[in-house]
């Protein structure tokens, strides 16, 4: 799942981060992720995985690394299944 997320985000024109060079647990905000880009990321993930993040998950922590994103996405896709 992490690789799917990495390649999705890498192709996103409004998230200018080099995801290919980032470790799974690297902090994305430290790598330059802005609040606005994190919103774009949230919307792209919802579309790709056909999920909706509940408000409790719309936090800085959820989107702080590829690993924590994958964790959140897999929780939500499991629920949907």
């Amino acid at each position: 799942m992490i690789d799917q997320i990495r390649s999705l985000l890498e192709q996103h024109p409004m998230i200018p981060l080099n995801f290919g060079a980032l470790a799974d647990d690297a902090n994305l905000y430290d790598a330059g992720l802005t609040s606005f880009a994190s919103v774009q990321m949230m919307l792209a993930l919802e579309e790709e995985f056909d999920i909706e993040f509940p408000e409790t998950m719309l936090t800085r922590r959820t989107f702080s690394s590829l690993a924590s994103i994958a964790d959140a996405v897999s929780q939500l896709t499991r629920k949907a299944a």
């Binding site: 609040s35 919103v39 774009q40 949230m42 408000e55 936090t59 800085r60 989107f63």
Partner: peptide
């Protein structure tokens, strides 16, 4: 919007 909810949470967290 919902993205804004996240911006708001970020703003508060920081």
């Amino acid at each position: 919007g919902r993205g804004g909810r996240m911006m708001a949470n970020n703003q508060r967290d920081q």
